[in-house]
Amino acid sequence: SPTSAGVEIEHLTQNVLKSYRETCQLRAEDLQLRRWDTFSREEVCAYQRKPMEEMWQRCAGRITEAIQYVVEFAKRLRGFMDLCQNDQIVLLKAGAMEVVLVRMCRAFNADNRTVFFEGKYAGAELFRSLGCHELISSIFDFAQSLCALHFSESEVALFSALVLVNANRPWLQDQAKVARLQGHLDVAFRVLLRRTRREGLLARLPPPGRLRALCSQHVEQLQAFRRLHPGVLHAAFPPLYRELFA
């Protein structure tokens, strides 16, 4: 009946919001309070002087931490752990980095184009020694475009659940089951937007191809780094990062 369907959707929404709150890594209020706490000129120079390998290793470490929170988010999402393990892994392998990029908009100050990194807000120039200017610019542009949508925490929660539970990912075993969960999350997202009079958001969401392109750009840059510094990846990068991207 429409009523019990409505109750089900409401339960799902509450579950997604709770899962997100418990795994969001940094509280929005804290990020907001610190948004003008930027690295000093000297600190930026110190980062820029770091060897490329060290800076890659640090960034891989921060990405891996963020991904661990995304895995916890997935595990708490109602229905996710009912999927077969192959499909859980397929969805996380394809979607974890995309969710990290979506979550990053909370830690981005669009007024001065800085992102929260290792304790303070950093501009794109801080990442110079990585040697991937284009990738960093694309990520900053993406964060800037998401910030323009003025996502609420509930919207980030539901949108990131939908980025993760995507029945179009290749190699799924039980696509229908993933599609069903995706369908329920999609309804929950739409109900939330209707209730908050934010339906206009749907037309402004980034197309899936944009997130996919950013993730491939990251993997391409990692391959280029690997050619330049063979061995470093295996010796010094977090195993989870290697498993997902190498």
Binding site: Q68, V71, E72, K75, Q88, I89, L92, K93, P239, E243
Partner: peptide, 14 residues
Amino acid sequence: KHRILHKLLQNGNS
């Protein structure tokens, strides 16, 4: 092949 993801998924919520 995805040893660590497997392990993370199998661990209880922590």
